[in-house]
Design a binder for these strands. Structure first.
Length: 251
DNA sequence: ATGGTGGTAAGACCA
């Protein structure tokens, strides 16, 4: 089973590149974040035509998540209001006994803002929710880089959003309920990022952060074969500021 | 890099 995650930064703006990505990688499941499209405007046909079903939950202009899958789901869950509030950030599909949780964690803006506390609360509530579950793959844009090797300059970024101590501690508590970082399991190199700011020529300088993740519970991660970041997609013109992450499992 | 770029939607707001 091949599963991918990509923060598209607008599904409509990225539809063409996403379809190229699907053609190239042929993933069984794709988790999308920041679709920025309301449900009645979701481009369902584009995916149905190439053999995928869609589960989605969006809103105008901001947020929005979707699961695009070759296989049908046995169950799904869209109601995560206790964790996300009014923002459309979490969606779950249960496929072949595995709970695929696609999450777009809050950005947090600045470490001293009210948005930051919302981010910490979100991570804590998500942990409480998932800790009651079995057979989980959690993937998406977590908006946190876990380790020093996951950012281009840990000294500069240690007080910045996405790498501050409080965020990394919250993320580590979520991780500690039984997850394995599937990318890190298969790749120990530093300088491997999933997001580069559009500004300041960041991609060319590789001034990025690894904030998009595929995490699996240990029993599932033990069946993972490989995991990689598709930088070719980030290198394209008019692309997202995030690169897709792809993992393959022998399930 | 107290700048910079991009998406949405039509002037800010979010990232």
């Amino acid at each position: 089973m091949k599963i991918a995650t990509w923060n598209v930064n607008s599904l409509n703006a990225r539809l063409e590149i996403l379809l190229e990505f699907i053609e190239k990688r042929k993933p069984d499941i794709i988790a999308l974040q920041e679709t920025k499209v309301e449900d009645d405007k979701f481009p369902l046909h584009a995916f149905n035509e190439v053999g995928y079903k869609c589960l989605f939950k969006g809103q105008k202009a901001y947020n929005g998540v979707a699961i695009i899958s070759k296989m049908d789901w046995d169950k799904y869950e869209k109601n995560f209001e206790d964790i996300e509030g009014e923002q459309k950030r979490i969606i779950m599909a249960e496929i072949n006994g595995i709970k695929i949780i696609n999450a777009y964690f809050p950005h947090g803006k600045m470490v001293d803002s009210s948005y930051f506390q919302f981010k910490l609360d979100f991570i804590k509530k998500l942990k409480e929710y998932i800790s009651k579950l079995k057979n989980v793959i959690l993937l998406g844009d977590f908006n946190v880089a876990p380790e020093e090797m996951d950012v281009y300059n840990p000294d500069i970024l240690q007080y910045s959003i996405g790498f501050s101590v409080d965020e990394r501690n919250a993320l580590n508590e979520l991780y500690s309920i039984g997850f394995v970082d599937v990318f890190r399991l298969h790749n120990k190199n530093k300088g491997e990022y999933t997001w580069w700011d559009y500004r300041s020529n960041s991609f060319k300088r590789n001034a990025g952060m690894r904030i998009d993740h595929i995490w699996a519970f240990k029993n599932i991660a033990s069946k993972s074969i490989l995991c990689y970041i598709d930088k070719e997609i980030r290198a394209k013109p008019k692309t997202s500021d995030h690169a897709p992450v792809v993992a393959e499992f022998d399930l």
